[in-house]
Amino acid sequence: MSIMVNKMFTRAVFLAFLSMFLFGCKSGNQKQPAEESEITVDVSELNQDLFQDINEAKQIFYSLPSPLETAMLIRSAGAIYDEDLLNNVDNSGNYTTNKSMALNLGIYTCDLSFASLYDQTQASISYMNAAKKMADGLGILDAINDETIERLEENINNRDVIMDIISETFMNSSSYLKENDRTAIAAIVLVGGWVEGLYLATQMVPDSVSLKNNKLVDRIVDQKLSLDIVMRLLADNSDNPDVQSIQKDIDDLKAIFDKIIMKTSSNLETSVDTATDVTTIKSQTQVTLTPEVFKELKKKVEIIRSNYIS
């Protein structure tokens, strides 16, 4: 008995130390100090300024548009549904590494959201199954289960319910990954969805079309603002080799986005609609984008996305 108790004691102490090591040393989301910069009207510099006091000890979150928001942004810009642009669900069997499964969980969730927003019922079910395969492969327990697919099928003509199911499954996946200290995988999933959105949007702009007063082009240019967040999200997980390889792609994109000049008013004003209690943030932004730069961006996004789905 005494030997048994001693063993139990040893195990208990071991587990205590193990738990302290695993959970007590977690660095959370605290970031390294960011460089300070002066306020100008250039968007890139303004965003640097936004991050200026990040060195203080506090929890920091970087929020990229989710695949659902990305798909909604493309649709609201007037995009037309084109299933040929989506990643074929038959490719899902090709993804066996954590990196490819994480990227394609984001990609398929974006495609699923896109198909659902256009009421493409059969495609929605197929893409939910493809996303499930990626989540299962990553060991994300019960983020998408058979019950989810059944709920989707039962409510296939109710877009609000479908949106709710997609939002819930994505939250299940990201919360599971974050709770289990797999933040690098969570970041890769988000980047996958973001790149897919960028790919769909750029492909939907024909080469011949004018870039001025084009809502879809405006949405693409807006991603210059999210690029900062993509980079910081990846930098937080840069000890992961998969993240390092994605950082190179994002650096390439940044070099092109840097050629797009975006200037915004430095002091934003607000006005509140008293009837709806909705605040409008008023501002003006000027963008300079040449057809050559847009073409270069479109090509680079196509190459990166092609690598991710192959």
């Binding site: 959370g28 989301n29 936004l50 991050f51 990040i54 203080e56 506090k58 929890q59 920091i60 979150f61 970087y62 929020s63 990229l64 548009p65 989710s66 695949p67 659902l68 928001e69 709710d164 997609i166 939002s167 819930e168 499954t169 994505f170 939250m171 990201s174 919360s175 974050k178 900062d228 967040i229 910081r232």
Partner: peptide, 19 residues
Amino acid sequence: HDGNYHAAVLTEGEEAELY
């Protein structure tokens, strides 16, 4: 809901930021 998850355990006096 956009589907993103941002939550943490905070103690009185602590702060968090989101971008």
